[in-house]
Design a protein around this nucleic acid. Structure first.
Lengths: 138, 138
DNA sequence: CGGGATCCAAGCAGATACTG
DNA sequence: CAGTATCTGCTTGGATCCCG
């Protein structure tokens, strides 16, 4: 089995902490990042609007995740010094490029969530501790 | 660009806990799942080999994550009743289809990790608490 | 060798209260 | 409105021991 010298995780090579996938997973692998990127896909959104859109996210997590995205250069934060402060968030160019692979993942999710759920149910249903070896059927 | 009426997260529609992206994120959004799928991309791998490949994963997390993948129908577990027990893990058909979107994500990571890191450094460097307004230089 | 069970530490995340 | 700060609970995950 010839392995390419590329540091591709998806090829099965041994990878350490410095592998790209690992890095990016630490960035976007959390619960909210991908959802926020999705919510910003169409353009600038205000903080409170964002909060309403994502529903379930706490204000702390929203702020924290937005900070992370801003730090990564994926989201741009714009403060409008108006009467009540207005803050807009938007994807940067880099952030916009993230939409594509994320969309692919979403499509996979939509296409396969059904069988995944079915598999889960089957798995959970088939489980019983084989404490008694004499009763092994089913 | 016409928007489809689909419940697409990446279009910015409001999404709740039942949105597909949310579901799939709860599945593969953890630290190890994607890495394990990557490690299994080329075929069956034994438990201990898997553990060696991923490096940094504990036996508990490996077992736990593999169980989750098995439950989702993405990984098949095969026990060979040999002298010392041998257990092989392999992707199922559904699991193999996951490689594509994951590969897209990995490619994005490779292509953009540089600028992300640069952005992080710039962000971290520009930060200092403006506690004293009279001392604003540095 | 593969993995279940337990114990425990650290980090994640929610609720609340306060600021500009 | 858009945060920051703190306190705390819960989950995650590592280490260890033991079993088949």
């Amino acid at each position: 089995m010839v392995t390419t010298p590329a540091e591709s995780v998806l090829r099965g090579s041994s990878y350490r902490a410095d592998c790209p996938t690992r890095q990016i997973l630490d960035r976007i692998g959390d619960r909210w990042t991908v959802l926020i990127v999705g919510a910003l896909s169409n353009g600038s959104v205000r903080f409170s609007e964002l909060r309403r859109r994502i529903e379930g996210i706490s204000q702390k997590m929203l702020t924290q995740t937005l900070r992370g995205l801003e730090r990564d250069g994926l989201v741009r934060r714009t403060v409008h010094p108006e009467v009540p402060v207005r803050v807009e968030y938007a994807l940067t160019e880099a952030g916009r490029t993230l939409r594509e692979p994320l969309r692919a993942l979403e499509e996979w999710a939509i296409a396969h969530l059904g069988e995944v759920s079915a598999s889960q149910e089957a798995y959970d249903h088939a489980e019983q501790p084989p404490t008694d070896p004499t009763d092994r059927d089913m």
